[in-house]
Design a protein around this nucleic acid. Structure first.
Lengths: 139, 139
DNA sequence: ATCTGTGCAAATAGTTTGCATCCTC
DNA sequence: GAGGATGCAAACTATTTGCACAGAT
């Protein structure tokens, strides 16, 4: 079962009724492998009101179907949580570009911290900042 | 040399003139080991205008003397960058409490990623979310 | 004396809320 | 038919900017 179907199913089980706006937002997120901004979603979906975008993102976040990614500046990014696509981000401080990456060692380290800390870790977010290959060349 | 002195020195060398507001903000950050919000700083420093708080934080961030920490919700936190105090954060999604932690394994993993990625990593930020021992007890 | 730093208030930008209406169940 | 879902516009909140004046060099 793909992410979109799972998400709609879980929303339904959580007691939410089905609506056009939410379906459109879910579809957009399903097609986007990395983080998108709420305003970006609003801009791309003419038939959906801004409030519905935020409301849907909030619901998805609460059900852990989507993860909030703190992109450096003003707006927050959101991306679907999909075990097969788990990744973290490199953010270029020059051009703002967001690049996903995967690291087995990092995941192991985080698992170990979760186990050792007196804290029940349910989600984690790693952001590395610096200069991407393109921008680093300028220096 | 302590952080406050280093910071003021580096600001001077970066061409900034000395001013009362900035000195107060630097002093407050120097005394605070973990993240503080801009509005929190503004609230605690009556004689300093809000704009000066943001301007100072921006300058310190640019010089990598301070690091922006993305606390979950609305406001961003700032904390001094001090090699001796390097740490990451656990955020409780129930009560919002911020707890610092240190992990050698994690740092090694990040160093390795930096080395292997085609990306010049200058800073990193790890946030683990979940429930702190107090809140997990309620469940 | 010059030019930067600062406080204040107004302007922005992202996000949230109130409410009338539409649509799902 | 009842109650949740949605769009619009207004409200909020964090952050930024314009500007006149104080202070540093």
């Amino acid at each position: 079962m793909n992410w979109a179907a799972t998400a709609l199913h879980r929303l339904e089980r959580a007691g939410y009724r089905s609506g056009a706006a939410r379906r459109e937002v879910v579809d957009l997120l399903a097609a986007e492998p990395c983080a998108v901004t709420a305003l970006e979603i609003d801009r791309r979906l003419d038939s959906v009101g801004r409030a519905s975008v935020y409301r849907t993102l909030d619901q998805l976040d609460r059900l852990h179907l989507v993860q909030r990614v703190e992109i450096g500046g003003d707006a927050a990014g959101y991306e679907r949580i999909d075990p097969d696509q788990h990744h973290h981000h490199l953010i270029c401080e020059e051009c703002g570009r967001l690049t996903p990456f995967v690291s087995e060692v990092l995941e192991k380290a985080i698992e170990r911290i979760s186990r050792e800390a007196d804290f029940e870790v349910t989600a984690h977010d790693v952001v590395l900042r610096g200069a991407c290959s393109t921008c680093a060349g300028d220096a």
